[in-house]
Structures are given as structure tokens and as C-alpha cells.
């Protein structure tokens, strides 16, 4: 019963759902998550997780859509999305490199590793390169402290990196990834 009540009204106000919601199938995934929690407010963080998983980041439209569906004020949704470090409101580059700055990594030189990447790829932590190829992020701890200092590249964990070789390591992977893409093109 709750489901019908909570059909998101159109932002245009003409009673029709927005075209983007209908055309983009990824919204179905987010809606499924919200349905699992009975469209109740306590499913907000889970909804944001599935939105970020689907789109890679949370844009204004998606946040408003979630707010409408869960019947929450947009301010609350925006507040939650910005409170947690895991959520990002900016689109990410094609590849993501995360440098762990946890204590174990830090005392084994993670700061130097980060500096080396920043210098070599002309990108600041938290930003994306000008060509949109690489996003550089930092994390608190992956829990892989035995491999310190640790970075991840597109989810692949690389342990015991050194400041001297890390920039090359990433450059190789960037080149490797683009070659695979070239190869996959018909």
C-alpha cells in the first residue's frame, strides 16, 4: 500500500514521471533498494549506497529523486550524503587510485607516496586529472596494514609501494587499461 502512495511525482509538476527516470534503467536498482525498506526513511543510507554504486557519484537529480521517494526533505538527504566520507557528489575519472593514509601506512611513508603521485600525475588528492582519466583519493584504512603502504587502483590492492616507483606503476596501469579498451573496440 505504501508503494503506491510513494510514487515519485514529477519535478515538472504535471503528474508524469521524469523522462530520465524512465529511460535510465539504473534508477530501477535504486528504487528496488528503497522498496526493500518499505520506502521508509531508515533506508536512506542504503539507497545512497546503491545510487553511488550505479552512477559512481551522487548528482542533484538523483538526490532529489531519493528525497521524493522516501518523503524526506532534500536538505536531510543532502545532509546525510555530505556527512559521510564514502559518498561523493562529484563525478569520478575513468580510473580511481586510492592511497591509504591509515596509521600503519603513514609511518611507513604513505605521505611521500601520495606526494609522488600528485607530482607525477598533476592531480591533488580528492581531485581528478584534467583529461578525466584518474581520480586520486585518500582513505583512512583498508585494514591491509601488513602490506603498508597500500594503494588501490580500480579496486586492485597494491601493497608495499615505494614513492619512487608508484607513479610509474599507475602510469603503466593507465596505459594498460586504455590499450585493453582500444582492443575491445570493433
Amino acid at each position: 500500500m505504501v508503494n503506491q502512495l510513494n510514487r515519485p511525482p514529477s519535478p515538472a509538476g504535471n503528474g508524469q514521471p521524469d523522462a530520465r527516470l524512465l529511460s535510465d534503467k539504473r534508477y530501477k536498482l535504486i528504487d528496488a533498494t528503497m522498496r526493500r525498506y518499505g520506502y521508509q526513511g531508515h533506508g536512506l543510507i542504503e539507497a545512497l549506497h546503491s545510487a553511488q554504486e550505479a552512477f559512481g557519484y551522487l548528482d542533484d537529480f538523483t538526490l532529489r529523486h531519493i528525497a521524493r521517494t522516501l518523503r524526506l526533505p532534500p536538505s536531510k538527504v543532502f545532509g546525510v550524503a555530505t556527512f559521510y566520507n564514502y559518498f561523493t557528489l562529484k563525478p569520478q575519472g575513468a580510473h580511481t587510485c586510492v592511497v591509504c593514509l591509515g596509521t600503519a601506512c603513514y609511518i611507513k611513508g604513505a605521505r611521500e607516496v601520495l606526494n609522488a603521485i600528485e607530482a607525477a600525475h598533476q592531480v591533488k588528492a580528492g581531485g581528478t586529472t584534467a583529461d578525466n582519466q584518474l581520480s586520486l583519493l585518500t582513505a583512512r584504512c583498508f585494514g591491509s596494514c601488513a602490506l603498508a603502504p597500500v594503494i588501490t587502483f580500480d579496486g586492485e590492492t597494491i601493497g608495499k609501494v615505494s614513492p619512487d616507483q608508484v607513479a610509474d606503476l599507475i602510469a603503466q596501469r593507465l596505459v594498460g587499461a586504455s590499450q585493453v579498451l582500444e582492443h575491445a573496440k570493433p
Binding site: 521508509q40 526513511g41 531508515h42 533506508g43 536512506l44 543510507i45 545512497l48 549506497h49 546525510v80 556527512f83 559521510y84 566520507n85 564514502y86 559518498f87 583512512r140
Partner: peptide, 18 residues
Amino acid sequence: AGAFVCGEETALIASIEG
């Protein structure tokens, strides 16, 4: 979702509540 303070019990509850 990456908030250290959520290890504190009342903050954790607030987070589960959404």
C-alpha cells in the same frame, strides 16, 4: 559510509536510523 564517529554507540544508532 566512512564516518569514524559512527563507532560511538549513539551515533551508530542514528546512522542505522538513516
